[in-house]
């Protein structure tokens, strides 16, 4: 397994775990009165945890394979990255378009903001998932 495939796995698992927990606890604790403060607080916490976990795992990975970590992406890895990014952008655009519609229909703005976060997270999961699939079966 190449360094970049391992890195894609780290992104996929980290996002699933951290934001899975974030959305689960947010749904449990959701209260319309305190929604704004709750969301901001939990978002900051989730982002901080995500950054720390991702940095620690990627640095550890780089320590085990420093040569690969320092090498630039080759042509296949670059192509895989671009293909995954394209698929991810479709997901993100669809999510944003749906949420603009939700806002226009009068949905709670904080709820829409949370759903926008979910859309971004899903797009990121799709990206790393697509990268893993392309790495496995060829680009």
């Amino acid at each position: 397994m190449s360094f970049r495939e391992k890195s894609a796995w780290i992104a996929f698992i980290t996002y699933t775990t951290v934001f899975g927990g974030y959305f689960f606890y947010l749904a449990q604790a959701w209260d319309d009165t305190y929604a704004r403060g709750l969301t901001i607080g939990m978002t900051i916490g989730a982002v901080v945890v995500l950054v720390i976990v991702a940095v620690v795992l990627n640095v550890t990975l780089a320590l085990f394979s420093p040569k690969e970590a320092n090498a630039p992406a080759d042509e296949r890895e670059t192509l895989i990255d671009l293909k995954a990014e394209r698929i991810s952008s479709y997901v993100q655009s669809a999510g944003v378009a749906c949420l603009i519609g939700a806002l226009l229909m009068g949905w709670n703005a904080i709820l829409v903001a949370v759903l926008l976060q979910a859309s971004l997270v899903i797009a990121e999961l799709v990206k790393s998932g697509a990268q893993i699939i392309y790495f496995r079966r060829g680009a």
């Binding site: 397994m1 190449s2 690969e68 090498a71 080759d74 042509e75 296949r76 790495f135 060829g138």
Partner: peptide, 10 residues
């Protein structure tokens, strides 16, 4: 060639 081993395999 200047690529990864995984690319040669592919």
């Amino acid at each position: 060639v200047g690529v990864t081993r995984q690319t040669i395999i592919a």
